[in-house]
Design a protein around this nucleic acid. Structure first.
Lengths: 325, 325
DNA sequence: CGCGTTTACGTCGTTCGTAACGATA
DNA sequence: TATCGTTACGAACGACGTAAACGCG
């Protein structure tokens, strides 16, 4: 059993049992992986994969067990390398951030910009996805950190650090009667109008739906879109009034009128989620410090090793205040 | 970085930074380890050990970090091999039990005998030690399981499975007045007499001492010994009356008179302690099943992976009942 | 002077890539 | 027939052991 064999093993599993594809990903040849896999199976004395003809068809039950162990071995090996790289003060590397579109488009640019200034040799990869996918990417070691929002409690998987809190806003075209009245809209007002919001608001457990249902109303969702830019586009087109994250407001959106919705919807929290027992590169800590300045570097390190006390909120930085600072 | 390098690394650390000794233990040559260690340090880019002249003097701070990770890597590699060995139904191997003398001498023989009958190719190593040492041995991967007793809660480190419960007994020579009265002795009776008990009863936190202190008495400990056989010897010699574990009573002790002490001292529990995240060989499960028959094999496996619900007591098997069965 | 580490060197095993072959849809 | 996995072979690397030199107490 060698580290290379284990690396090949998980590469094959992650490539959907396609050895050729796995070989490309690990920068090796297909016969090499094939042979190493066979040798590993010979040494262990059982099949890791079920063969159908020559192809791999499935992972055996025992293979799953081995895969799980192999993953933690490789993760710890990566940790050792990270310790070394930090000690050597290496400034190059990569940062894979799994996140949703809203975060990537509106919340992250400032922090990523600052990171790039301080560590120009670090290449950042934004990996968009829905909430579930984002956490899965982190879990499967396909991302280094995840940035994700919830309405209430932190996500269950991984270690969640609170980054910031935000509210939703109502977005109407300039001159729309809802904005003209001068007083903030009520849920009844909104229920009477066609809404444009995120795709996720179609889900039964979406916080938007639940806010309406809590008072016995049913929102009329005219259309949904994957990102805020699209929502704004359709609000402009008059398809309906928008409900979206306040971060999505830009100074250039002068033709749109944002109305507060703090009193209608629960506050949201954006979290930085990390894998347990992971050694972070210096520049990742730097990124976290930029993105969530209230998090002490030592808090982050401590949260990673032990299941320590949850991080407490600071004097609640609000989004607008943060960007102003 | 290779698995061999990591293995050498922890071997050197465990050998007290003596490379030659470490080389013997891993069945390799000293120059081999020396070179591999250097190569690992070169690859990582920093010193794992502090050199004093040519010798290794200490582990560096970063070295400690790496060592910890290396240990879990090796443990997981061992787990993979254990999965394989179990699947192949291998019947040979070793079982290293870290435990105290009382357990080794009186409680374990039956289970070890049964294990040897079923798995004659398994070599059992009993590794005696005091309570703290026993758990340390388990923690440092120098034992596969630990068997240890406490008065109240289970030991904090590792996963503790309750094995059985027992009481202490008072042991006096035949014809001693304490046994002649016919009624069980009181703490006052005992406090007036010289006692012979385990070395551990000298500790301030010993349960023997605390039982007396709880009622404002101070026991008069005439002498202590490391094991029950010695205690019995000195009770026979008339040095005092014995206080020891009921398991230590043998049918052949006809010249000694055991008096119940259930009403004087708190009940003790003997635990089987395992390391977290460890794959046990089949024969270890077999041993556990023999030693603590009320533990379901699946309970054991489940307890190892997750921090699951603690095992509950069955219809409280008492020591005497168990040996009778 | 002995113990322990490093350096030097030769051998052996192993891995890896290239190329050809085979099976499967 | 195209795709994917296996077999075969040769070259290169690397690990290991033996033997000798070096430092230190």
């Amino acid at each position: 059993m060698t580290l290379a064999q284990l690396r090949y093993l998980v590469a094959i599993a992650d490539a959907g049992l396609n050895i050729t594809l796995a070989a490309e990903r690990v920068h090796a040849t297909q016969p090499g992986l094939s042979k190493q896999l066979r040798q590993l199976e010979d040494e262990l004395g059982f099949q890791l994969f079920v063969r159908k003809g020559k192809s791999l068809d499935a992972v055996t039950r025992a293979g799953e067990q081995v895969l799980e162990r192999a993953r933690t071995i490789l993760a710890e090996a990566a940790n050792i390398r990270a310790i070394a790289a930090n000690l050597r003060q290496e400034t190059s590397g990569e940062l894979r951030i799994a996140t949703t579109h809203t975060q990537a488009r509106f919340a992250l640019p400032a922090a990523i910009g600052a990171l790039n200034l301080r560590y120009p040799e670090v290449s950042v990869h934004l990996q968009p996805g829905r909430d579930g996918e984002v956490l899965a990417q982190l879990d499967e070691d396909r991302a280094d950190i995840a940035v994700i929002s919830t309405v209430g409690a932190p996500p269950a998987t991984g270690i969640a650090l609170p980054a910031y809190r935000w509210q939703r806003v109502i977005l109407v075209p300039q001159g729309h009667p809802l904005g003209a009245s001068g007083k903030p809209p009520s849920l009844e007002d909104l229920a009477a109008l066609p809404l444009v919001s995120y795709d996720s608001s179609l889900r039964d457990d979406s916080s938007l739906r639940r806010a309406f249902e809590a008072v016995g109303l049913r929102p009329q969702i005219a259309m949904t879109a994957g990102d805020a830019d699209l929502i704004k586009t359709y609000v402009r087109a008059g398809l309906g009034i928008g409900v979206l994250a306040e971060m999505a407001l830009l100074d250039s959106d002068t033709d749109l009128n944002p109305l507060p919705a703090d009193h209608l919807f629960a506050q949201c929290t954006t979290w930085i989620v990390l894998r347990r027992e992971t050694v972070l590169r210096e520049y990742v800590l730097e990124f976290i410090a930029r993105f969530a300045p209230h998090l002490d570097r030592r808090d982050v390190s401590r949260a990673l090793t032990a299941d320590a006390t949850p991080i407490e909120w600071p004097a609640a930085p609000h989004w607008r205040e943060r960007t102003a600072g």
